Computed example of a mutant assay.
Amino acid sequence: MPNMIDGETEFPETNSMLCPWGQTMPFVFRAAPKFESLADKWILPTLHPRRGEVVIERELWPVSEMFGASVGQHRRAVNAGYEATRRFRARLLALGQEALAILRAKDEMGIVLLGRSYNVNDPGTNLNVPTKLRTLYGTNVIPMDCLPIVGIDIKDVNDNMYWNYGRKILQAARFVSRQPNLRVIYITNFKCGPDSYIKHYTKDAAGGPFLTLQFDGHANDAGTLTRCEAYLDSQGFFTHEPRPIERSAQKSLSRTREERVEA
């Protein structure tokens, strides 16, 4: 179980850290009483993806060496892993572009799901709300991992977004701000410290209102779906007539960062 410190980024001047829970989870698991008998079985390499493939290759070498792999085998394995990741991401983007093209061609609205991949894509965590949005309400749903957000600048929203997922979330929100037929549902989880303040910048990036769904692993979906219905109705999904929103990449409906500081 790797100890992931940060994530890849196209903005090297700004940190791209993973959250404290993500960074420390391997050590939390190892210290759990249930796993005391397996304390010497854990393999916990510390990885820094933002430093690139060469660094990851070096940081993973002790693990490969432990299993008797040669240097050549190790390098081929790391290269294969990166190549598989690139193909997977390319496939996600292709699916996203296809979905966006269909929405434009049919003049339909869509919901972009913002959030961390383990919240947005795990039906156990999010009570399968993405699927229910589609099956119960006919809503077009696109996860943010399928959007072309690489290179989108969000410095006017937050010039030091050092959380890796925070940057991606705000980039996706900014992308939505440029698409008149898209709206946002932000999926988060209880006790997520970074999300507790990242979501306050999301309105600035999205240029309009959005729905936040916070899951804690205990509630059922009744209240959640009621909130979804209210949001979809308020945004014109049921009438197929999008409610106009004055969007702007430079000026948000909420107060600017400077105004908030002065207040």
Rank of each mutant, 00 (worst) to 15 (best):
A84H: 11
L95S: 12
R91I: 01
M66E: 11
R89L: 13
A69F: 15
F88C: 07
G72M: 10
W61Y: 04
V54S: 13
E83P: 02
A77N: 08
V78C: 07
T85V: 06
G96Y: 11
L100C: 02
S64D: 03
M66G: 08
L100F: 01
L95C: 07
W61S: 00
F88V: 03
A90M: 10
L100S: 01
M66Q: 12
S64P: 02
L103A: 07
V71T: 12
E59G: 02
I102H: 11
E53H: 10
L92Q: 12
R104Q: 15
G81Q: 09
A80K: 14
R58E: 00
S64V: 02
Y82A: 06
E65V: 02
L93V: 08
V55A: 05
S64Q: 01
V71S: 13
A80Y: 10
I56M: 15
E59W: 04
I56E: 13
Y82D: 02
E65T: 06
Y82C: 06
W61M: 01
G72R: 11
H74W: 07
I56H: 08
L95A: 08
A90F: 05
R76M: 11
I102V: 15
G68H: 04
A80F: 12
R86H: 07
L92S: 01
E83R: 13
L60K: 01
R76H: 09
R91A: 15
L93G: 02
R76C: 05
E57I: 06
A69C: 12
E65D: 10
A99V: 08
A101K: 13
R89I: 10
A84T: 12
L100G: 01
L103E: 06
L95Q: 14
A90L: 10
R91S: 14
H74T: 05
R58G: 00
P62M: 06
H74D: 02
E65P: 03
R89K: 14
R76D: 11
V63N: 07
L60C: 07
V55Q: 03
H74A: 14
S70M: 10
E57Y: 08
G72L: 09
W61I: 00
F88A: 13
A94D: 06
R86N: 07
Q97R: 15
A101W: 05
L93F: 09
A84K: 15
R58A: 00
G96E: 09
R75Y: 05
E83D: 13
S64I: 01
G68P: 09
W61G: 00
A77R: 08
S64K: 00
E83T: 11
L92I: 00
V71D: 08
Y82E: 03
R89G: 04
E98L: 02
A101F: 06
R89S: 10
A84N: 13
F67T: 03
E53D: 03
H74E: 03
L95W: 08
V63A: 09
R86K: 14
E83G: 05
E98W: 01
R86C: 05
T85G: 09
R104M: 09
A69H: 12
S64H: 04
V55G: 00
L60N: 01
R87T: 03
R104D: 15
A90E: 15
I102D: 15
A101Q: 11
R58C: 00
L93A: 08
L93E: 12
G68D: 07
E98S: 02
R75C: 09
E65N: 05
G96I: 12
L100E: 02
V71W: 13
V54I: 12
V71E: 13
